[in-house]
């Protein structure tokens, strides 16, 4: 009885150990093709390294709308998604508003009327801006380059590199 119990548990451990290795391989493969699977028994690797003296590059997205005043306004994603924990903001922008993901569709993200109205309402609530007329919402991605000078780091340039057009689908 005791041995049978131990045998079952030991077998379970063997299977689970094999599963851990298999799922790690899957995370590596699917993570490259699509996005990181969940749930998985893995932790992030943060494998990037840094050479002293080089520029630090950061891709930064902003929502851009034309306000009722006719001026163009930039709004940080943290203001649009202020109800959602801060740690999620970069991931949301990278996966949902990344122009590269929409290249086949002409860099246009079509939102349902419900989704578009939600985004527009958030812009109005958080930034106090009313997208004018057509109500076009853009997401502009820029490469910000920083360089260290002593104990300061200066942003040496900001280059807009890509734009996503957020459009309202016709019901």
């Amino acid at each position: 009885m005791e041995n049978s119990h131990k045998r079952k548990i030991r077998g379970g451990f063997y299977l689970f150990a094999a599963w851990l290795i298999f799922q790690y391989l899957m995370v590596g493969i699917i993570g490259v093709i699509h996005s990181e699977p969940w749930p998985a028994f893995t932790l992030p690797g943060f494998k990037n390294v840094f050479d002293r003296g080089e520029f630090i590059e950061q891709k930064v997205p902003v929502f851009v709308v034309e306000g009722a005043d006719g001026e163009t306004h930039s709004i940080r994603p943290s203001r649009i998604f202020s109800d959602i924990p801060v740690s999620h903001h970069n991931g949301i922008m990278r996966h949902q508003f990344n122009p590269a993901r929409f290249s086949s569709g002409g860099r246009i993200k079509m939102l349902t009327p419900e989704g578009y109205d939600w985004l527009r309402a958030r812009i109005e609530e958080e930034a106090g801006l009313m997208p004018a007329g057509s109500g076009q919402i853009l997401v502009v991605w820029s490469d910000h380059f920083y360089r260290i000078r002593g104990e300061e780091m200066r942003q040496v340039s900001s280059v807009p590199v890509d734009t996503l057009f957020v459009m309202r689908a016709v019901p």
């Binding site: 790690y24 995370v27 992030p44 690797g45 494998k47 990037n48 390294v49 840094f50």
Partner: peptide
């Protein structure tokens, strides 16, 4: 799984400073 990619990614290369880069 947190350490293995670092090993492959060059964290042990003495010419690079990964922790410093993340810190900066």
């Amino acid at each position: 799984t947190a350490g293995f990619p670092k090993l492959l990614g060059g964290w042990l290369d003495i010419n690079t400073h990964a922790t410093y880069g993340h810190f900066i």
